[in-house]
Write a protein that binds this DNA or RNA. Structure first.
Lengths: 294, 294
DNA sequence: TCACATCCATCGATAAAACCGATTAATAAT
DNA sequence: ATTATTAATCGGTTTTATCGATGGATGTGA
């Protein structure tokens, strides 16, 4: 058993397709096939079921993949530790991000890349649940998202800032002069909300159902910019976190009253995993950048 | 980086000597030297300092070895999972044991080896602290010892039984008829105790100093059998856990009063590590065997 | 239904690498 | 100074990882 074989196996499992996996691994399909076979012989168990021209992972393969992944990850962490020790400042940072926190990441990202030109940064956008899932499979160094209710003990949570939920409207609307509005008031208005899947939308749905409010949701849009454009028309209102809105968006945001109407922006990472120096530095930038937010 | 290289490196680190490590790995010294060098090149950092003809691990090597060990261990755990799945019932169990619990392990060990002839069992005797240390370096599947005060959170503790500390003497001595004696009484007697390093001795020293007793320790012996022989002479008394003494030893054991005068026999294992089926079965036997003890 | 494309396994050949024995260089021990 | 011990290096050998070609099995589309 060698790490090479474990890497091949993991890629094959991920792709569910030897040919494609081999392509991504820059080896021939024949090599991959042989190496998987060799690994299976050593383990004494098939890792894939060959059904026709397809390969489907077996129960054994499923079980084994956890260990394979962890073995590979430990070895790579060891490498990273020594890279850091040498201050070589090379390598890669992978970040999971939810849409609502794009404006938080952007300035930190720019400053980081300016000062660390030799570090490749990879940002993946998705829902909060997706990002956490991938984090736990070592696909990210950290995830930037709004607070998750369930605190899992293998994760480390760092608070960046809190920000109120706001009712968003076109400037000059009657409500625009108020200092705050209640959730009940908001629920009576024609609403354009982010689509299902967004953490903000999930949060809104939850607080609304808690108060037994069934609001007038006339629009669902899975893009914040388009959402704001709709709001600017003056026909609809929206509910968003204040930090999602910029000056130049040309809309007015009025905080919604209520103690649960604040959301927490969090850095979430794996508790037991090695933290690269570059990642520590990135945290610092994020915290500095987001001081002014919330 | 391959597991092979990590294994070579770990053995070299363990031995502190390439020639010896190579011998144990069944490869030539030249091969080991080359593979270590190759690993160092990939990591960008020397793992050993070459001081004259000696090799001394570097700080980087020290750091890296944790990750290397864990990587190798994860891979081997994965193998073990699949072996178990296949019920091949082959493999190895490694047990750390303190002297005081030899009579507990022995019967379970015999029964286990009768029913699982294809599993190799390795038992290592030593002090409790040594055994725990080795457990944390994946050298054992579990350790059998008396209770450690400091509960470390990466360890799993299973209680086997509790047993009182007893004052041990030759039969027919005046105290032999008593149902119990106090620690103060015992401290006034001429004592023959297990030598430093034994967990029982550490425990005795602790409770004595807690009560500000400075007993009359006239003998220290690092072998229980010889200790008992001395006690049988009638000149000395000893303090031992009741389960350390058998009928055929020809001595009388009187419990010492006091709520802290009971020790807990524990199975200690790594919480996060995979538990082999054979080990689970061994636990069952141990618990069954030790029902009657304490 | 019959080509046709796709996918995995296998085979023989080749390139890469792991490995060995011998030798050298450095150092510690005597 | 001499000898023994140890790690590094060199050249050659063995092992093995890899490749391209091929064949069989299985979907796919005309």
């Amino acid at each position: 058993m060698e790490l090479r074989q474990l890497r091949y196996f993991l890629k094959a499992k991920e792709m569910g397709n030897f040919t494609e996996a081999a392509r991504l691994l820059h080896i021939s399909q024949s090599t991959l096939s042989q190496q998987i076979k060799q690994l299976e012989e050593e383990l004494g168990v098939p890792l894939f079921n060959r059904v026709g021209k397809r390969v489907v992972i077996t129960e054994a393969g499923q079980l084994f993949s956890d260990y394979a992944l962890q073995s590979v990850h430990k070895a790579e962490s060891g490498l990273q530790v020594l890279r850091d020790l040498n201050n070589l400042e090379t390598g890669e940072i992978r970040i999971g991000l939810t849409y609502g926190l794009r404006p938080v990441l952007a300035p930190a990202l720019i400053r980081f890349m300016e000062t660390h030109p030799n570090i490749r940064v990879q940002v993946v956008l998705g829902t909060s649940a997706e990002m956490i899932e991938k984090l736990q499979h070592f696909e990210f160094d950290f995830v930037l998202t709004f607070h998750e209710a369930e605190k899992e003990k293998d994760l480390r949570y760092q608070l960046l800032f809190e920000s109120p939920m706001t009712l968003v409207m076109a400037p000059g609307m009657p409500l625009a002069k108020k200092k705050s509005v209640s959730l009940e008031e908001a629920a009576r208005l024609p609403l354009a909300l982010p689509a299902q899947g967004y953490s903000t939308r999930a949060f809104i749905s939850e607080v609304l159902s808690l108060k037994n409010l069934s609001p007038n949701i006339s629009l669902e849009i899975n893009d914040i910019h388009m959402l704001l454009e709709v709001v600017r028309s003056g026909e609809w209102y929206s509910i968003l976190i204040r930090t999602s809105i910029r000056q130049e968006d040309g809309v007015t945001a009025v905080p919604i009253t209520g103690k649960n109407m604040r959301r927490k922006a969090m850095i979430i990472s794996l508790r037991e995993s090695y933290e690269k120096k570059a990642v520590t530095e990135f945290y610092r930038l994020l915290k500095e950048t987001s001081k002014r937010m919330g």
